[in-house]
Simulated scan of single mutants.
Amino acid sequence: MEFIISILAGVLFSTAIYNLLQKQLLRVIIGTVLLSHGAHLFILTMGKLKRGAPPILTEEGGPYTDPLPQALILTSIVISFGITSLLLVLAYRTANENDTDNMEQLRGNENE
């Protein structure tokens, strides 16, 4: 199971890098979203996907799951949601002000 999720995280990373290198602002934003989702899966996989009881200590012994990867992922989801909303607002404002979302035209390259 960890192998499949590792492959899925790699596919998300490669798709994210491809989108980050595009010329349109929306594709760059989609690339950052995919990169954060790949990081979430990577953190979850590094925390080992094992089943067990919730980490509530009782007198009975047993396998417990580690709550730290889930806590890190929840924090990362909140941060990536904030960053995504900020990037979408900035891209919307930039497209309205400049009438384009092409990165080459926004840089002011004169050879086009």
Rank of each mutant, 00 (worst) to 15 (best):
S76E: 12
S76H: 07
S76C: 12
I77L: 15
I77N: 05
I77W: 00
I77Q: 06
V78A: 15
I79C: 04
S80E: 03
S80Q: 05
S80M: 05
F81I: 15
F81Q: 10
F81E: 12
F81H: 07
G82C: 06
I83A: 12
T84C: 04
T84Q: 02
S85N: 09
S85F: 15
S85M: 14
L86A: 14
L86M: 04
L86K: 10
L86T: 11
L87D: 01
L87I: 04
L87S: 01
L87R: 02
L87H: 06
L87T: 01
L88H: 01
L88Y: 07
L88Q: 00
L88E: 00
V89K: 07
V89R: 07
L90Y: 14
A91W: 03
A91Y: 02
A91E: 06
A91N: 10
A91L: 08
A91C: 08
Y92A: 14
T94Y: 02
T94S: 11
A95V: 06
A95I: 15
N96S: 12
N96P: 02
N96G: 11
E97R: 14
E97D: 06
N98D: 07
N98R: 14
N98M: 09
N98S: 08
N98C: 03
N98A: 09
D99P: 04
D99C: 09
D99K: 15
T100S: 10
D101V: 04
D101H: 07
N102K: 08
N102V: 04
N102W: 05
N102C: 12
N102R: 10
N102F: 09
M103Y: 06
M103N: 00
M103P: 01
M103R: 01
E104K: 13
E104Q: 13
E104N: 08
Q105A: 06
Q105S: 12
Q105C: 08
Q105N: 07
Q105D: 15
L106P: 02
L106G: 05
R107Y: 10
G108P: 00
G108N: 08
G108Q: 04
N109V: 15
N109C: 07
E110T: 11
E110M: 13
N111I: 10
N111M: 09
